[in-house]
Design a binder for these strands. Structure first.
Lengths: 227, 227
DNA sequence: CGTCTAATTACACGCATGCTTAATAAATCC
DNA sequence: GGATTTATTAAGCATGCGTGTAATTAGACG
């Protein structure tokens, strides 16, 4: 009878107040998950609150209710993703004396492979002019990481393990370039290079990268000794 | 007398119709310049038509008048910037037999230094999910450039100039990483690494990069000969 | 049972966006 | 010199944005 009154609709529209079964944390969690996916794929500005809410299947106002607003949601997500990385840098900064340069790149690359959103997030926030947290990111990453790496490189040079005729700062830059860019390019790489981004490829890539880098910056003192 | 009528204002507001002195191409040019600066700095989505018009000092409607709309303006700009690069790739694809791999990176790096917006533009359009021209960019760049480079690398391997135990596709990836990323990072690099982005630094960077790359991927057949 | 709190919805506000249109005036043409 | 074309402006349109807010309801507490 095409009844459009509100009394008998009861289709998919949820009624107004508090829901019957209390699944409180559920909404918060769903919002976080949807927002993480969208923000990491398209960036902060390109994703709207309504898009996030729609993807999470909840009302828009819940963003304000749980996170205070769109920036609060973004901050929550970035903090969660970036915390372990920051901790890693700090740990490296503390015990920098017993770290092997060659294994460091493998560690970093494993980090990118485990958290595939991180390279894009860092590049978007740090290198492009985008993102509302740029200053924080720059303070957290390049300004903390680069001096540690530079000191490491200089130490290895003094010990005669790295070519001393190279500019240590540019060696650091090359390390970051080789270690980070392939993961930035991964979505395109898999199509253009015809490779699959699986564990086997990751091992292959790490071996290749460390190989190319070390045979470039390592001193060739005894070229015929180790094959 | 606080006269607010339109007859005697005559301040900065231009009168409605066609301007007295015909500076027709001027407006078009000013729009292109302003749009190029803004688009390259902040990306397509983050820049509004009104921002561009305001920066160019012209009316918003002129964007539609001259370019049909915001996408038309963007297309015009990207085409102009990307044309020479595309031509370069095609030329390389044609006469790929007499190209030296080592000098190629220097050429590319000089290209980035001359057109500082290009690396950011390419990364934004190709690697991130952003940008309305992503498909076109992918077809124009990685899908055209990568096979050419790969063939070049394989040829150099067959000639015994490059290590044959490396994966040619990953060598190409490393070349692109080392050649492109430093220019992506340039705005941050200059602050974090404490360097100035001048001609001297460019030469230094090119020398360093080719050095690191070639001593990594080149065959060490006569290690003691050239010191 | 009455009150209070937590969780959720619908709605609307003000603003910015890209785009369109009508009006207008100089330049040009026949 | 009247008609047409070209270049420009102001105003407005629909849409989408982030954010508020009042209403509503289930559960908790006394």
């Amino acid at each position: 009878m095409l009844n459009k009154s509100s009394a008998t609709v009861q289709r998919k529209r949820r009624s107004r107040g508090r829901p019957r079964t209390a699944h409180s944390e559920d909404v918060r969690e769903k919002l976080l998950r949807a927002a993480r996916d969208l923000f990491m794929r398209y960036g902060y500005r390109a994703v709207s609150s309504r898009q996030i809410a729609s993807a999470a299947g909840v009302n828009v106002a819940m963003i304000r209710y749980y996170f205070g607003g769109k920036p609060g949601l973004y901050r929550e997500i970035t903090n969660a993703m970036v915390g372990p990385l920051r901790a890693g840098i700090d740990a490296m900064s503390a015990g920098a004396t017993q770290i092997e340069l060659a294994s460091l790149i493998g560690t970093a690359m494993r980090m990118w492979a485990t958290n595939p959103w991180l390279p894009g997030l860092i590049v978007r926030e740090v290198l492009m002019q985008e993102g509302p947290l740029r200053a924080m990111f720059i303070r957290d990453f390049p300004e903390r990481l680069v001096p540690v790496l530079e000191k490491l490189v200089r130490r290895e040079m003094e010990r005669g393990r790295l070519r001393a005729d190279l500019d240590p700062r540019l060696v650091v830059l090359s390390m970051i370039s080789l270690g980070l860019f392939p993961f930035l390019a991964l979505p395109v790489t898999s199509r253009v290079f015809g490779v699959r981004a699986d564990e086997a490829f990751l091992q292959h890539l790490i071996r290749h990268t460390t190989d190319v880098l070390t045979r470039g910056i390592a001193v060739h003192d005894a070229p015929g000794s180790k094959k």
